[in-house]
């Protein structure tokens, strides 16, 4: 047997606008580094199989499953998590739409869905793409998705109804 816990290295990841310098193993998942290294527990881990999307964060503008990315791969990257998408006490437009449309129940899968939708709002994604493809990458066991779809339609409509999302952000 090899001695699996290999050497550690130091990475610096800019998380929600703050540089975080973390000591990680080569095998440390980005999800674990965020949750247990940086103490940002808003990012949830539900499968570690890349199937459910609960752990989604935005890395350099792209929605990424943080259980499928190593922390060392994020060295030098900008990472946005659910804890940073709106100022304290406020909600991002996507969060507000989920609230007003009852798009969450237990709330465990919610942070990942919020982050995928936040990335979509900034990427010029149409409402149909957001409903079909972006939400299609997430598993939710409580809501049956009906009210999450309603929230997406609502958020996109509030942003102007033009089919894209300019201005949906907080």
């Amino acid at each position: 047997m090899t001695d699996l816990p290999g050497p550690t290295r130091t990475v610096t990841i800019r998380v929600d606008g703050t540089d975080r310098t973390l000591t990680v193993e080569g095998r440390t998942l980005l999800s674990d580094a965020l949750r247990h290294g940086a103490g940002l527990t808003g990012t949830h881990v539900a499968c570690e199989q890349g199937a459910c999307g609960a752990c989604t964060v935005v890395v350099d503008g792209r929605a990424v499953r943080s259980c499928l990315m190593l922390a060392v791969q994020a060295d030098g990257a900008e990472v946005a998590t659910v804890e940073g998408v709106a100022p304290a006490g406020a909600l991002h437009a996507v969060q507000e739409a989920l609230r007003t449309n009852h798009g969450l129940q237990c709330g465990f899968c919610t942070p990942g869905i919020v982050m995928s939708l936040v990335a979509a709002t900034e990427g010029g994604v149409t409402v149909d793409e957001a409903v079909d493809e972006v939400l299609g990458g997430h598993l939710c066991r409580c809501t049956g998705y009906v009210n999450i779809r309603a929230a997406i339609v609502d958020a996109w409509a509030r942003a102007g109804g033009g089919g894209t999302t300019a201005g949906v952000g907080a």
């Binding site: 808003g42 998590t81 909600l91 989920l98 609230r99 969450l104 709330g107």
Partner: peptide, 15 residues
């Protein structure tokens, strides 16, 4: 609207 939602939506739930 649910009182539970703001903290769950902002990653401030406590699981």
């Amino acid at each position: 609207p649910r009182f539970e939602d703001p903290r769950l939506l902002t990653g401030r739930g406590r699981f």
